[in-house]
Amino acid sequence: MREAWTAAVFELSPDEWTAVRLSLQIALTATAFSLPLGILAAYALARWRFPGKMLLDGIIHLPLVLPPVVTGYILLMLLGRRGVLGAFLADHLGIVFSFRWTGAALACGVMGFPLMVRAIRLSIEAIDRRLEDAAGTLGANPIWTFALVTLPLALPGVVVGAILCFAKALGEFGATITFVSNIPGETQTISAAIFTYTQVPGGDANAWRLTAVAIVIALAALIVSEIVQRQASHRLAQFE
């Protein structure tokens, strides 16, 4: 009796495993694809002056302040099978986002993007520009300067930004469910699965197990982020 109870609490069913695996897959994909773009956007916002900079800043931050359902709906309008961009991508390039896990990753990436850009931008802005100037006078062109000076010094912010984006992607619900629905095995993440289990009688045990998994993943992400930040401030203390 006791063993059956522990099994019921700690052993995930195949469906639940699928939801966990999908969540990690979607969150990792979202983070990996957002990262280069996020670094570029953060660098542009921190270092460049160009017309429409405030507008770009606003657009990047929009998913942070809009209701997630609205963001999901905009994605559906743009990138759904009948959307403006979606139809083009599907007809000419064979890329389909709607009702696919790739669509979920896109929605999660969009939602996590502002958090990522913010963290990276702050760490780039904290770098003394004269270090970049010094690299220039030593013969490094702007690309080398970025690769050898700016990026390594901004690395703590890049890691924190990536973790924030990953955590946001794991927990994303509103935009994802609006854009790609809640299909078990394709787009059903931990959050969507918990939501589904709470809607059916006797689903509490399932919901509880997935909740525990979500807590473990979130805690792990927070701890990694904390360790990275501590190491960064330790390193900073060395050269002050």
Partner: peptide
């Protein structure tokens, strides 16, 4: 001439 092509040390 951009700074990285000047060969002037600072």
């Amino acid at each position: 001439v951009p700074k990285h092509a000047r060969r002037i040390g600072v």
